[in-house]
Design a protein around this nucleic acid. Structure first.
Length: 510
DNA sequence: CGCTTTTGACCGGCGC
DNA sequence: GCGCCGGTCAAAAGCG
């Protein structure tokens, strides 16, 4: 009995041992299978990682290529900037009689920067020489409108440059820099404008008399109006001249005579510009309204209109006048900008007709402004223009040989931009109407109504005659379009010839 | 500490 | 002459 029990126990133990072995085997198989799955997964992940690495390397390579390309473009631009034999880009929509015939010796130009490229270049990493985004496009908010908006003051950069923080995006602080160093010395709230006006002084040289005022357009807070006054009595930094090239100097692209005018040894690239020619069709007589030294830069990023109200016969006797004679002028474009000259004084066909006091543009006419709708991207202006130019192999400065189609297309695209219209209106208003905005302060004069798009504002035919003859004014209209906007003053301002002593000038930059 | 911005006061031109 | 207005000054404060 005892033996039976022992046998039974032994059998049970043996069965249990068998079960254990089977379980172990099963577990082993299970683990084996799991390992296989993990191994497969591992391989898949490895392949995936390889793919990612390949993509990463490809992207990196592309990035380096692009970066290198931009660096080359920047250096090219710098070289061109500093080169007296700089190339010129001129998109002329007309000709002014006050403009001397273009000198033949002006070199042909092959703009290497389109507006797109400009935008790219300005948004890339900081360049040691040219205005970086921090120095060029970025606008910190220290200008006229800053106190009116609760911007964090601590974020303001304090390097003496203009700073404009876009109101649309408080988090994004953008700065505007025209190359010079400015110090704010005052701020005032001008009558009729809720935005305060800021006063800056050039600090590059302690004795530099140049001052500038920055004010936001009351009608469009995104528009900055900067007024420059005075002439730099010092060498401007490269960035300043660069900025000058993009703005007021851009105006000179129109009719660029190339003069190294012996009498006027201008150490700086000339920033003398030409202007917008408008015509008042009054009593069947065309009265030219010429906005000298004005330009429009339709950069997609920062559409800039330069309106220089300087008399083109300014005396340049000031020892501090570093501007070249109004015309012809030398221009060293850094970027491809565009100057629009709206008509030719020599032409009987006025591109701009004044009907019943309203300011209209004729369509489908060379040199005219077309404010009609257009969906063509602005950069196409440059592309088509450059393409046409290269195809024709024509020198850029030979503006008279521009294809009318090109001009017309470019004009249409540029001027159809609502921003452009707004900006142009603001500029003209600020200049023509003086301090008066809208109809304020315009009483007593027989004004015309300048109609741009849906907006109208008065214009006087007597505008260029008196009050502005002693001032050199360049107005840049710079409409911030979300990202940033930039405008700058010309390197050497015009000389203000207050009657006899042209010491300062006024440049308006919007 | 040096530089810049802020801001109220001051000054001069201009119109009434 | 007075007041308005734009421009400038300068002390105080902020920032790196």
């Amino acid at each position: 009995m005892e033996v039976d029990l022992r046998n039974t126990t032994t059998q049970i133990k043996q069965e249990q041992h068998k079960d254990c072995i089977q379980e172990d085997e099963m577990q082993f198989e299970l683990t084996k299978a799991e390992m296989g799955e993990v191994r497969e997964e591992n391989q898949r992940l490895r392949v995936h990682l390889d793919q990612i690495m390949k993509d990463y390397q490809t992207l990196q390579k592309k990035f380096q290529d692009i970066f290198h390309q931009q660096q080359q473009q920047i250096s090219t631009a710098i070289n061109r900037q500093t080169d007296d034999e700089s190339e010129l880009v001129s998109l002329s929509l007309g000709r002014s009689s006050s403009v001397e015939p273009i000198k033949k010796d002006k070199r042909s130009s092959t703009p290497t920067k389109s507006a797109e490229e400009l935008g790219l270049a300005l948004s890339t990493a900081e360049s040691p020489v040219i205005p970086s985004p921090d120095n060029s496009l970025e606008e910190a908010k220290d200008d006229a409108g800053e106190t009116s908006t609760p911007q964090k003051p601590s974020t303001q950069k304090r390097n003496g440059d203009d700073q404009e923080v876009l109101q649309q995006n408080p988090a994004k602080k953008t700065r505007m820099n025209d190359g010079c160093q400015w110090r704010k010395y005052g701020q005032k709230i001008a009558k009729g404008n809720p935005c305060p006006r800021a006063y800056y002084r050039c600090t590059v040289s302690p004795t530099c008399p140049v001052r500038k005022q920055v004010q936001r357009c009351p009608q469009d807070m995104s528009i900055l109006i900067t007024t420059y006054e005075g002439t730099h009595n010092h060498q401007l930094p490269v960035s300043a001249t660069a900025m000058a090239s993009t703005t007021s100097a851009a105006a000179s692209m129109l009719t660029l005579g190339s003069t190294t005018s012996g009498s006027n040894s201008n150490p700086f690239p000339s920033t003398t510009s030409h202007g917008l020619n408008f015509y008042l069709n009054e009593n069947s007589k065309l009265k030219p309204v010429y906005l000298p030294h004005s330009s429009i830069s339709p950069s997609p990023l920062c559409p800039t209109v330069t309106l220089d109200l300087t008399s083109n016969t300014l005396s340049t006797s000031s020892p501090y006048n570093y501007r070249s004679p109004p015309m012809p002028s030398i221009f060293h474009p850094r970027y491809s900008t565009t100057n629009l000259n709206f008509s030719s004084l020599e032409s009987n066909a006025s591109p701009i007709s004044w009907n019943n006091g309203s300011f209209n543009y004729r369509e489908n006419q060379t040199g005219s402004l077309n404010f009609g709708p257009s969906t063509q991207p602005q950069e196409n202006i440059y592309h088509s223009f450059l393409k046409n130019k290269s195809m024709m192999g024509m020198p850029t400065t030979n503006q008279h040989s521009l294809q009318p189609d090109t001009i017309e297309a470019a004009t249409r695209v540029i001027t159809s931009d609502p921003n452009f219209q707004s900006v142009l209106q603001a500029a003209l208003t600020s200049i023509i109407g003086g301090a008066a905005v809208g109809s304020e302060g315009l009483g007593g004069k027989s004004g015309q109504t300048l109609k741009l798009g849906d907006d109208t504002f008065p214009v006087f035919s007597s505008f260029p005659s008196t009050s502005n003859t002693n001032k050199c004014s360049t107005t840049f209209i710079n409409k911030s379009m979300g990202a940033s906007s930039m405008s700058s003053q010309a390197a050497g301002s015009n000389s203000r010839s207050k009657s006899t002593s042209p010491e300062t000038s006024r440049d308006h930059v919007v």
